[in-house]
Design a protein around this nucleic acid. Structure first.
Length: 417
RNA sequence: CUGGUUGUAGCUCAGUCGGUUAGAGCGCCUGGUUGUGGCCCAGGAGGCCGCGGGUUCGAAUCCCGUCUUCCAGCCCA
């Protein structure tokens, strides 16, 4: 349905019956990440454009055609963050990281990318991400991956499949790019139009093309791993060895390149069904980022989980946290005097932590009982003139329909202890 | 951004070949003797038929445009 009150395209509201699921995912993240020493960080949704330009890469699709950028009244070029890592690194380095110091943070929030929406793909979407910043070691990468698997186990998706690969160091990439370029340019005529474009813009992404004829050419292409430096291959070998040691199942996917320029060495994705054509529920890797104003690149490793996709995957696995009914008591009033007393009583019970709903429109009893039923309240407390004079309320258990009188002063102790 | 697809009540959807006052189920509201929910019964409220233009005596229905939904590509989470 199309109405004026709809949000703009590709952006959706999250209603109360859904937020319980969202809270569960966020709370679980906090519990799991805490075990690995991670604390939450909250960085701005809006950043200067250059925070993303150089780190993500000027030639990437995200920067070229997917960023929500605009000029503010002060003439600054700003953009709605398309991912979380660049902003977190900006924040961390701005405050300063001591040499050899390690920062462990996680975040959860909205990201923006100007794409046409589909299943598991929105213009405003939400990522849950972590960053381990400051140090370089295969074991750190592995611990990061282990933590990701730990989280997926905690949200009931232990069957998600881990894909890993290496991109080597930036210096390796130049030599690999040359090898790939000289190979693929031979097949310029045969490849799809997207791949012909990629020849100039982003040659690594050809490896990820799904076009059948392109695939035949890709299969025979020189393996990336063979053209990396010995130290890069050694780094990757250590990552794989440690994962095996820790019994983490994974698959090396040489097609896995990912679309952001800042990645070096280890890259990985977690795939699971239920998200339609896009099955990457989480992705990440090691990176080197130099935020604007910095003189040195800062190393780190991290991942981001797509929350919308995570929810789709969980739904696919038959998992969803239902909204709990939070109401304990529905207060039913008969007559003006009792109504006033009930207003006072509601306040007193709420001070004791009881969740209460009551009729505020002077409706009849039947209507009030219907509301009591719909509210999901465990008890209906009924008070009219008769009860008022006796200092009692009628308490009706909405589950079994039993009802009994109860002294007003004893309500808390009798019902909630 | 490209291709396809969708739009009628709060929700799910009917609506014939163009023909009066646009329907159903669910939900909602009010009742079914004086103070008791669910089930049942009766009644009621609720529609810019996505929007704009066109054809026609007449359009929810046909044509064009546009917006939106959803799916896919691209890309990524």
């Amino acid at each position: 349905m199309s109405k004026r009150s709809e949000p703009i395209p590709g952006i959706t509201d999250i209603f109360p019956e859904e937020t319980t699921e969202w809270r569960f995912l966020e709370n679980t993240a906090r519990d799991v990440f805490r075990k690995y020493g991670y604390d939450e960080i909250r960085t701005p949704i809006l950043e200067r454009e250059d925070v993303f330009l150089h780190s993500i890469g000027e030639s990437t699709d995200i920067v070229q055609k997917e960023m929500y950028s605009f000029t503010d009244r002060g003439g600054r070029n700003l953009t709605l963050r398309p991912e979380g890592t660049a902003g977190v690194l900006r924040a961390l380095t701005n405050r300063g990281i001591l040499q050899g110091e390690e920062k462990r943070v996680y975040y959860s929030g909205a990201m923006f990318r100007g794409e046409r929406p589909a299943t598991g793909r929105k213009r405003q979407f939400h990522q849950l991400g972590v960053e381990n910043v400051g140090k370089i070691s295969p074991d750190i990468d592995v611990e990061c991956i282990v933590m990701l698997m730990d989280y997926f186990r905690a949200v009931g998706l232990s069957d998600a499949k881990l894909l890993i690969n290496t991109r080597g160091l930036p210096s390796d990439r130049d030599t690999v790019s040359k090898v790939l370029s000289s190979y693929f340019s031979k097949y310029d005529e045969e490849m799809c139009s997207d791949c012909r474009r990629r020849l100039d813009t982003n040659i690594w992404r050809i490896l990820d093309c799904k076009n059948p004829t392109c695939r035949e050419i890709i299969v025979k292409s020189p393996p990336v791993l063979d053209n990396l430096s010995e130290s890069s291959r050694d780094y990757f070998r250590k990552v794989c060895d440690r994962l095996r040691l820790l019994n983490v199942e994974f698959e090396v996917d040489t097609r896995l390149v990912r679309g952001l320029d800042y990645y070096v060495h280890t890259v990985f994705e977690l795939v699971h069904g239920g998200c339609g054509a896009q099955n990457a529920v989480a992705g990440g890797g090691r990176y080197e980022i130099m935020p604007p104003g910095n003189r040195r690149a800062t190393p780190g490793v991290g991942f981001a989980i797509g929350l919308e996709r995570l929810i789709l995957s969980r739904a696919d696995a038959g998992k969803y946290v239902e909204t709990e009914t939070p109401i304990d008591v529905y207060l039913v009033s008969l007559g003006d005097a009792a109504r006033l007393e009930n207003l006072v009583l509601a306040g007193r019970l709420r001070e004791n932590g009881v969740a209460i709903l009551m009729d505020l429109e002077e409706r009849g009893m039947k209507a009030q009982m219907r509301s009591a039923d719909k509210s999901g309240a465990r008890f209906a407390l009924i008070r009219g003139d008769e009860e008022l004079s006796k200092g009692v309320l009628v308490c009706k258990n909405m589950g079994d329909s039993n009802q009994f009188e109860i002294l007003e002063d004893n309500i808390i102790t009798e019902l909630f202890n």
